[in-house]
Simulated scan of single mutants.
Amino acid sequence: MSSPDELPVLRTLEELTGLVERRGSMYVRWSRGPAADLESLSSTDDLTGVPLPGLSANSLDVEPWWDNRPVRVWVARRLYDYAHLPRDKGPGVHPWALRGQESGRGPDNEPLVQDIEPVGWIDARVIEEAAEEVARQEGGWGPLRREGR
């Protein structure tokens, strides 16, 4: 049996966008990978240490209010918003795409996901493409990040 970490690599923003357009219940998780995550199937609240009922992830699914705007921009923003996590969480943290079912919300209102199906690693180049796509937009925003006190 192969390891859950033996996944295809999604190498372009276009490839990931295509998956989001074709499949539902798509998420991105920033962690050390499915093998480590699937052992516990639970995230932990960093502040309190409380175990959460699922893995914290960020939805890649397009919201209805987005209308017919480019899915590529939506996906780019979802990746860009959390691109700081590998720096904050330490070595070995990488983004990977998955399918799953939302089981609740975490303390930062992030989806908690169960019934995980790993889909693929997200290559660093995809994150670079996402940043480039964000830079091309007229409005400005930065990644979601809280500074410690």
Rank of each mutant, 00 (worst) to 15 (best):
E129N: 09
S3N: 13
D5T: 12
D46L: 12
R78P: 01
L52T: 06
R99P: 01
V20Y: 00
G24S: 10
I116P: 00
S42A: 15
P91T: 06
A36K: 10
A36Q: 13
S43E: 04
Q101G: 00
Q114V: 09
G90K: 02
P95N: 08
V93W: 12
W74Q: 03
D5Q: 07
G92S: 02
G139W: 12
R77S: 09
E15Q: 15
W65L: 14
A57S: 14
E102G: 01
R29A: 10
G139H: 15
P34V: 00
V73L: 13
G139F: 12
S40W: 08
T44Q: 11
E14P: 02
S40D: 07
A36F: 14
Q101T: 14
R125W: 09
R145I: 08
V93L: 00
T44D: 03
A57T: 11
D108K: 15
L55P: 03
S42H: 07
G92E: 04
S3I: 02
D108T: 11
Q101I: 04
P86M: 09
N109M: 14
L16N: 04
P86W: 11
P64A: 10
W96D: 03
L52Q: 15
N109V: 04
H84G: 08
D67G: 11
A35H: 11
N58A: 08
R69I: 02
Q137F: 06
S42K: 07
N109P: 00
S103K: 12
H94I: 05
W66R: 08
L7A: 00
E110M: 04
R136C: 01
P70I: 01
E129H: 10
G120E: 01
G120Q: 04
R87D: 14
A131N: 10
S43Y: 11
P34I: 02
E138G: 14
W65C: 09
W66C: 06
D61E: 07
E39Y: 04
P86T: 07
E110L: 10
G106W: 11
G33V: 04
P107L: 08
R136G: 05
L16H: 05
A131Y: 06
S2Y: 07
E138P: 05
V126D: 09
W74S: 02
P111S: 03
D45C: 15
D108E: 11
N58W: 14
P51Y: 07
P70H: 05
M1S: 13
L10D: 02
H94D: 03
V113M: 05
S3A: 08
G100V: 01
E117Y: 02
A57Y: 05
Q114S: 14
W96K: 07
R11V: 05
L13F: 04
T48R: 09
V119L: 12
L47Q: 13
V75E: 00
L10F: 07
V75P: 01
P107F: 12
P34E: 03
